Computed example of a mutant assay.
Amino acid sequence: MPKNNNNSDVFLNSLQLLQKYNYSAEEHIIVTKDGYKLRSFRIPRKGPPVLLVHGIGDSSDCWLVLGPKHSLAFLLAEAGFDVWIFNARGNRYSKEYTKKISQRQYWDFSYEEIGSLDVPATIDYILYVTHRSKLTYIGFSQGTTVFFVMCSMLPEYNSMIEHAILLAPVAWMKYSKFPLIDLFSRNLDNLTLYAKSKMVYEVFPFNYNLNRYHANVCQVNSPFRLLCELEYFIDFGLKKITNLMPDRLPVITSHIPAGSSSKTFFHFIQGYANKRFQRYDYGIERNKKTYSSPSPPDYNVSLISVPMTLFVSEVDWFSDKDDVGILKSKLKTVDKFININESVQFTHLEFVYGSRVNSIINKPVINILDNLRNR
């Protein structure tokens, strides 16, 4: 195992990371209407509540693994905000259910259920515990997708969010630059059938052996560092691995992935294939039963009334600037649109794991929240 002091964090979970750095931490179990148990973490402070929502296949860890000086959860707590860190159903922290069901039943969800059930249950819980009427929402990647789902399907939640800060927003994926997405979309029917026949319900689960591998090959002085660099270039377009916090890289890579459902990934690929931001496509017959229509309806993002700030990078493979352009044209309440120029070469993972995250993301985010608090 790596001997660098920073890497003692490699196998610490969210609660342990908070406790190691001497932050008062709470663990909360939130039960959704359909029986999923979600484990959220809180750094209690006297200021307004802020909810942090992770990306696909990720967890609460993403807001903590850079440590106290660079991770947004710690910095928000230092600024006096009441920090709540979300975990979606199916990731390493939220794998329990209120009763005995089959694996097939448990994993039968996509990002729609996270947006229409998990996030609303979490918001209800936070507002009840804090005796507040509103909170601020910060989402990254899929954490923005589920926000759009919630606020369009359940418009009453718009009034519970004072402001939404959306990092690398993902809704339309028409122009996604991820190299494999075209291959996946052309073979989507076969992939779906294969997953069903082989009972592949969970994908990219949290895996200690994989974590140990990443903790070793992603060290600064590892002779196998090229394997780490190739993986992150192929998956995320990261040309310089040093754009992720170099001395924290074993910690970052040993906490991802954290698990999700195959159906969630298929839902995103459907969006690319159909060039729409739409509900899950079950095929004509089941669509008729589910939606009373042969094709799934679009999410009506024009119903969203929450004031929003969008952070967008011109080189992001997953939150493409042209796709965000489609989204922005349909949203009515974008307060600020922060565009990170192509020359900066700021890729998708850098929004939460980057070595430049303080100057490009964290400080502007905290300034926005401070302005809201001081109004």
Rank of each mutant, 00 (worst) to 15 (best):
T290P: 07
K263L: 07
H348K: 13
L117V: 09
I269K: 09
N7R: 14
K198V: 10
L331M: 11
F318Y: 14
F184C: 12
F148V: 06
L64H: 01
V65L: 03
K275L: 10
L191D: 06
T145K: 04
V146T: 08
K3W: 15
S152F: 13
K3Y: 15
E113C: 02
H348R: 13
S152H: 04
I161R: 07
A25H: 09
P296K: 12
I123Y: 04
S59G: 07
D320W: 08
L117H: 14
Y111V: 08
N341C: 11
F81I: 04
R373V: 05
S292H: 14
S40D: 13
L154Y: 09
V220P: 07
L210I: 07
K328W: 04
W63A: 00
V365H: 02
N300C: 15
T122M: 05
S71D: 02
V129T: 09
I269Q: 08
G354F: 01
C228L: 10
T122V: 07
T122C: 08
N341K: 12
P205H: 03
T253N: 08
A73M: 03
S254A: 14
F147R: 03
I114W: 06
F109L: 02
I361R: 00
I181R: 10
I114S: 00
L226F: 15
F81H: 02
G47P: 03
S185Q: 14
L154R: 08
L135P: 04
K95S: 12
Y23E: 06
A273S: 09
N209K: 13
L210W: 13
R356C: 01
A164N: 05
F86V: 03
T136C: 08
Y291Q: 06
E156T: 12
V220G: 05
T309C: 06
Q270H: 05
V31I: 12
G57W: 09
L193G: 13
N209C: 11
L327A: 10
N207M: 07
G90R: 05
F318L: 08
L38T: 09
A88C: 11
P294T: 05
F277G: 08
A215H: 15
D189C: 06
K196E: 14
K330G: 05
L238A: 02
D189K: 09
P246T: 02
V200H: 03
L349A: 02
S102M: 03
T122H: 10
K275A: 10
V301P: 10
C151T: 12
V344C: 02
P120H: 04
T98S: 09
K100H: 11
D182G: 15
E113G: 00
N4H: 15
S141I: 00
K328F: 06
